[in-house]
Write a protein that binds this DNA or RNA. Structure first.
Lengths: 223, 223
DNA sequence: ACTGTTTGCAAGTACCTACTTGCTTACAGA
DNA sequence: TCTGTAAGCAAGTAGGTACTTGCAAACAGT
């Protein structure tokens, strides 16, 4: 079965790439990991570059989108965001070596990474839309809304949230404080709590009653 | 002058490394950039690894610490943090290619990067101490302080601030929205504003009067 | 004017890289 | 039972890599 071997080679290529980057992932090494003869690689993929392209494309497609996505109409921001962020964080943590390598190779082989970071961009947009929905439905506190730079601040907050997840996954090993090695859900919840505090969205418990001047149901349904 | 040549080689090595990483920065390439014969490299440094070690060590030492540091006693959190973060952000942005490469090479050559990210850790600690000082001196709002997980939340907020700067510098090219390409000071100010809002530290304008229940001067001086 | 150091230059070593070729073996469908 | 396809194996090609060696030229200090 041709397909079986192809799959083995592809997963081996992903492993090798994550370990040592493009240049470090030699065809010999890939063949060895796959338990396959080196020439089989070339017979199946033509060249190392072609193999790596396909392998990275697949890997990236696998972590593409967080499911379920953030709802278009927020009903429990803390829970919704926490779940979403926890899953995103888990994906990021799981592929951190690969992502790091891909980032490092960015200038050298930009196209392969332009796709590679598509999921990050998707995530950015998704949170962005969610924040807009929060503001639209009256979840955001008045001190934030009344600020002349409200939109910019909300964008900054959103960037910080994603940045926190990103940084958490990427710089994990750098922390000397092992207390900060927190499981996804808990870490995500912390970040989301800080994020919601910055926006002035009130706590989950009192969500029904306490958030500023709007009731639970969207007060208005304009754009 | 031996020293002159050494310097040229070292800066060339940093350039080449930032462009193409360790494996990509061939001795030929370094020699070419430095305008020097290849053998001169080996005569001066012995090996490529030795050269790169020295080059990276220098580069990293150059961006080591933000000066002036954050004050031990906060007096104007927004301004102080903004200035500090802006400078940190500028350093990060300036060395982003190199940092990305170093991150990618992390697993392969860990020691060279353990030092390499020392400044990031310093920054972490510095902000951490500053936040503690903020809490000690009564800047932090009561809703945050009264939270049972106050310390964890404050740590998360601090992580997010540093993460935002880190992510800003690293993922810069990935943003398709050019509006987000904001100059350091402005970007830093936004992040700090969001950060302070999360902590419940009031705005700079009313700093003298409005921050919760404490006056400008530290109310108490306990640990 | 002599001498030691530092550089450039040309060539070479040993090894690793992607990739190729020719041949053999195994299996699957007709 | 024959045949096509996909795999393994051994060997080889062409080029790049770090690193070495020997020699000549430039210069500096005594």
């Amino acid at each position: 079965m041709s397909n079986d071997v192809r799959e083995k080679i592809i997963t081996a290529a992903m492993t090798a790439y994550a370990e040592s980057g493009f240049q470090g992932a030699t065809t010999r090494r890939v063949a060895e990991i796959a338990g396959v003869n080196e020439v089989t690689i070339f017979r199946n993929f033509g060249s190392k570059a072609a193999l790596m392209d396909e392998a990275l494309f697949r890997r990236v497609a696998a972590l593409k989108i967080v499911d379920p996505p953030l709802p278009q109409v927020p009903s429990d921001p803390l829970e919704e965001l926490t779940n979403w962020c926890a899953q995103f964080l888990r994906q990021m943590r799981g592929s951190r070596e690969l992502l790091r390598k891909a980032m490092g190779a960015a200038e050298a082989r930009f196209h392969e990474m332009a796709n590679g970071f598509e999921p990050a961009r998707c995530a950015d947009r998704e949170v962005h839309d969610y924040v807009k929905a929060l503001a639209r439905d009256g979840w955001v506190g008045s001190p934030m809304l009344s600020d002349p730079d409200a939109t910019e601040l909300m964008t900054a907050a959103q960037t910080m949230l994603i940045g926190a997840l990103w940084g958490d996954a990427m710089a994990r090993e750098l922390k000397d404080d092992p207390d900060l090695w927190v499981p996804e859900t808990r870490a995500a919840r912390r970040y989301v709590q800080v994020f919601l505090r910055a926006l002035g969205v009130s706590e989950p418990a009192h969500a029904g009653a306490a958030h500023g001047d709007a009731s639970i149901t969207p007060s208005t349904s304009l754009t």
